[in-house]
Design a protein around this nucleic acid. Sequence first.
RNA 1: CGGGGUGUGGCGCAGUUGAUAGCGCGCUCGGUUUGGGACCGAGAGGUCGAAGGUUUGAGUCCUUUCACCCCGACCA
Length: 414
Amino acid sequence: MRVSQLFTKTSKTAPGDEVAKNAQLLIRAGFIHKEMAGVYDYLPLGKIVLNKIIDVIREEMNAIGGNELSLTALQQKDVWEASGRWNDEVMDVWFKTKLASGSELGLAPTHEEPLTKLMKSFISSYKDLPVYPYQFQIKFRNELRSKSGLMRGREFWMKDLYSFSRTQEEHDTFYEKMSEAYDRVYARLGLGEITYKTFASGGSFAKYSHEFQTLSPVGEDKIYVHEGKKIAINEEVYNDEVLADLGVSREELVERTAVEVGNIFTLGTKFSDALDLNYTDEDGTSKRVIMGSYGIGPSRVMGLIAEHFSDDKGLVWPENVAPAKVYLVRIGGDQAVAHADTLYDELIAQGVEVLYDDRDERPGAKFADAELMGIPYRVTVSDRLIGAGQYEFTPRATGETSLLTGGELLAKLN
RNA sequence: CGGGGUGUGGCGCAGUUGAUAGCGCGCUCGGUUUGGGACCGAGAGGUCGAAGGUUUGAGUCCUUUCACCCCGACCA
């Protein structure tokens, strides 16, 4: 992509009404735009980052048998009344609206009910199970207070997978596989080191649920971390019983603030009871389907990564989620243009994603933008280096520049 | 939803005791520049969140209202 073709621009200043670092940097770099409190547009570069996060999650969900689908955002009242969650006192984050006919509708805050109902059309035998449908979708939640930029929005992206299993054992096995898949997701997103599988309250069908909590000063949750076991306990269940269950003592735990970047939850038969989702087992008897739900908020993850991987110059994207691998800076006249154009074509031919700064700007402005946007590698083509057949190569994270030949450069970026 | 704060060109801000708005960035044009967000000159762009009120006169005072931010409560 050529920078001259991007309609977005960078800004030296952040909007005065944004305090959260993730929002300030993402807006300054032109990745997102604020529409209203807790509601953001994803601009071209931001959309690429969001897509990359989604792609990582998708690969891991597919690897454990997920079936991607797309459910509707408009929700019928009846489906939710079956579980009692249409009631505003039970679920206080509803955005409700009406059809022209006057019928009430809701904007989906989550999808257990509609999906459970949908699956009634496809699940009837033990042979139809287990199944793992999932989706990436914008959820709507009427939060009393949205905050922290992308971290808590009223409209946000969510990956939600739901498991439908025959037995508790089958469910438990999948639950564990999902936990491992989540570990791989966060590792690939560069958050593995600071993300902890955290014990949280389980609801009526399991003693615990698990949250994936990433350490961050902007976190809303307080957790107690056990470094040795790489686990943590949410403060809501931080008690002697849990400590005993996990075989840890208070002295081994450290209190930290963290951001919930995902959760896995055993639902049991809560929704299959409410909506009457059954299957016929091998012995001919009818049984309830055992369910689980598994969420990750890609938009929140994006905010967290922006918040975590940044410095005084701007964003510092991990390679797996960066909008491009290389920021190609061109300095100089016709000769530099010709060389940069050629290198751009070569990199593209090699499958390297490049953001080519072909603007007629001064070098300082290009360098500053490359840093603000946080592209992992900056490559500089300039008149003064062409004679020597050299290119400058500068990793964003270290800022250390080395001089490479064309061959060395292509090898390094491959 | 309770408490606190803020709304002035696209963005960041200033506007003294009331007298129909100013700076920086950005933008346009001309020229000079060209390895760390260039410089000079000339321009365009706002009725000051909205509504009502006080006053000869309101960005400045009063009332109402909307929006945004922070803390708390609540939540992916």
